[in-house]
Write a protein that binds this DNA or RNA. Structure first.
Lengths: 182, 182
DNA sequence: GTATTATCGGGACAAGTGTCCCGGTTACTC
DNA sequence: GAGTAACCGGGACACTTGTCCCGATAATAC
């Protein structure tokens, strides 16, 4: 970490830009311009450009702050004794995080540089839940990611219902059919 | 319809632009420029601009050609004697249509001018399926639309699994709880 | 307090977008 | 087949976006 080498005002500005960007991306999507972010953060466009040479760098940095919490939660859940409960709990967290930062929802579950850590954990939780028979065995991570992304697009209402539907659908199983694959 | 007033070449060009736009929007999303669409259609940008004064007009026109089939199917299903089956069948069609035209998926279920007709039918099918107890009563159309949109983002694999998960989750019900609302 | 140097601000630039317009061409009418 | 008007092509324009640069400024070391 070379953060200590930054000057005090530079650290402040960097943090402020990151904060504003997170808020703006969450509420208005990734299409907001860098100029607008700089304006709202009260800095010049050059300042943003220096800390985050590319818009993609800015997006990645915002994603990193988001994924940190999710990664920590996933690791905690992975140590749980209830693989099914752990998976479904993380599913809810993913949806909530995605819905709270709508512009970044797709990137959250994707294989981007920042979200990779989340994906790895989500995959592991899924596999573990499937091994104990808590989640139907025919779904793969891409299926779950797509469905989660969809849930995050639910606007103007509570997320509980969509998450509930999703969990019920993933559960193993509506009607026991334990041995239709072996 | 004033289409008969168009000159022959104008009709041809209009159809060609529409065709190319549908294909391009489907495979590369709405962010493709009008210039690019004109180039691929082998016409000038002015030609596109005249038939569809605004890019939004072009998108709407493409959506209209898509929704026509869906509307017809929905009307046919609405006359069926199995509300549950009708709803789930239409759900599958919606997902397939959305996945085949990824750039327009969100607009398909939305309240845009062109997709309104689809939404009205989907709402009706949902309500009817809920009335006979085939679909859990706590979901609303916005929930379904969000989940369908998610399914359409599933890339590189078969859609059957996600649709299956979605249907199982929506079905009424994993464990009967008929009277928790009344 | 002064010198130094990292950092700032915002104007500038290139690339890309949607939209419009005009001279030329082609299809339809008689 | 000639006249007319609708239509075409693509260049032009205004605008936005991401990125870079440079003179001005303010923080840090001594």
């Amino acid at each position: 970490m070379a953060e200590r080498l930054l000057r005090a005002d530079a650290r402040r500005n960097r943090a402020r830009v990151l904060e504003v960007a997170a808020h703006v991306f969450a509420t208005e999507g990734l299409s907001v311009s860098v100029h607008e972010i700089a304006r709202r953060a009260g800095v010049g466009t050059g300042t943003v450009s220096r800390h985050f040479p590319t818009k993609d760098d800015l997006v990645t940095a915002v994603l990193l702050t988001l994924t940190a919490d999710l990664v920590a939660e996933a690791d905690a859940l992975a140590a749980t004794e209830d693989p099914g409960g752990a998976f479904f709990a993380f599913l809810g967290s993913l949806v909530r995080a995605g819905a709270a930062h709508r512009g970044l929802a797709r990137e959250l579950t994707g294989a981007g540089a920042a979200a990779g850590a989340v994906e790895v954990r989500a995959r592991a939780l899924l596999v573990r839940a499937q091994e104990v028979g808590a989640v139907r065995p025919d779904v793969c991570y891409a299926d779950v990611a797509a469905l989660v992304t969809g849930c995050t697009t639910r606007e103007g209402g509570p997320l509980e219902t969509v998450v509930g539907v999703l969990c019920d659908g993933l559960r193993h199983t509506t009607r026991p059919r334990e041995d239709n694959s072996a």
